[in-house]
């Protein structure tokens, strides 16, 4: 499961670029900071590589494997 804290996001787009399976895309709406945040569009394609979490400079993306904590 990918959880995105949309109001912490500053919209740099690194998570979208480093995703090997194009799971994420920019949203059409703006967040509190006035930027387009990433949204999960193809959750089924996600391989839980955690790239989006590791590269997020604002700790806004959390990847958790289902069934584990």
């Amino acid at each position: 499961m990918i959880h995105i804290d949309k109001d912490t996001c500053k919209g740099c787009g690194i998570c979208i670029a480093v995703c090997p399976k194009s799971v994420l895309e920019f949203s059409k709406e703006l967040n509190q900071k006035g930027v387009n945040y990433p949204e999960v569009v193809n959750e089924k394609k996600c391989i839980l590589c955690e790239n989006c979490m590791i590269y997020c400079p604002d700790f806004a993306v959390v990847v958790k494997k289902d069934g584990k904590k």
Partner: peptide, 13 residues
């Protein structure tokens, strides 16, 4: 967690 760096800054990584 509230980093005040610019968007896309490497500090967070």
């Amino acid at each position: 967690i509230n980093y005040t760096t610019c968007p896309g800054c490497g500090n967070g990584i």
